[in-house]
């Protein structure tokens, strides 16, 4: 028995060393390099030659994009912070439902915008970290030469940095939804908010635009398009 223990000690030490060595890079990951890694991976999927010529992001490419984004983006944190203190009044199920619905809404409306990506370069400038929160500033050079400020908010969870907010030209996704969520929660309940977000997702899926009577307008716009094409 003692000899077996003696033998196991070096093995244990080795195992510990190995774990440390493996865990170290994950812990040492800086916020800025996490953002860079994530953005690079998204760009790699967008520019993957096998999807070249595709009219819109769909099928396998969409799946790949979703996986990459989920790996680097914390939708639950974004939802919690957009809701603010009332989040505590949500049951765990409601928290989960809202996060998922909100995530779907953002995916539906924003992933399509990635199609416009045309090789714009990200220039990472600065990272600031305090405790488990961090802020990364970057500058994107648009194709017409204009500089756009794109910033990221990050949180560290289990030793990994995750993005929870993206800020383009001073407009943060989280902050845009704060008033809207607060307004709905003031007049309604967590469930009515979840219902509203789900309704929006369903409307977009059905090809209807937002404001209550906009469906008609959208049809009008669609009818305009073929006429314009003929010109």
């Amino acid at each position: 028995m003692p000899s077996a223990m003696k033998r196991s000690i070096p093995i244990l030490a080795l195992a510990l060393l190995l774990i440390c060595a493996l865990a170290a890079p994950a812990l040492a990951d800086a916020p800025l390099s996490t953002v860079k890694e994530g953005v690079d991976k998204v760009i790699a999927v967008l520019q993957d030659p096998q999807y070249k010529g595709a009219k819109s992001i769909s099928g396998k490419q969409l799946e790949q994009l979703r996986t990459v984004i989920k790996q680097y983006f914390d939708f639950t944190e974004l939802t919690a912070r957009a809701v603010g203190r009332p989040w505590l009044k949500f049951s765990p199920q409601q928290q989960k439902d809202l996060s998922e619905a909100f995530q779907e809404l953002l995916e539906k409306t924003y992933i399509g915008k990635f199609e416009g990506y045309n090789g714009e370069k990200f220039d990472y400038q600065k990272e600031m970290a305090q405790g488990n929160l961090a802020f990364v500033q970057s500058q994107v050079t648009a194709n017409d030469g204009k500089l756009l400020a794109v910033n990221f908010r990050l949180i560290q969870k289990d030793g990994r940095w995750l993005i929870y907010d993206v800020i383009g030209e001073g407009i943060s996704i989280m902050e845009i939804y704060r008033s809207q969520f607060a307004q709905e929660l003031q007049n309604g309940s967590p469930d009515s908010l979840i219902g509203k977000v789900r309704q929006r997702v369903a409307d977009i899926a059905a090809g209807k635009a937002v404001a209550d009577d906009k469906a008609v307008l959208n049809d009008a716009a669609k009818q305009q398009q073929p006429t314009a094409a003929k010109q």
């Binding site: 539906k108 409306t109 845009i176 008033s179 809207q180 307004q183 929006r200």
Partner: peptide
């Protein structure tokens, strides 16, 4: 994009 992704487009445009 801004209005479509919004729950209340008016508030979204105002805040933006």
């Amino acid at each position: 994009t801004l209005t479509e992704s919004a729950i209340d487009p008016y508030t979204a445009v105002r805040d933006a």
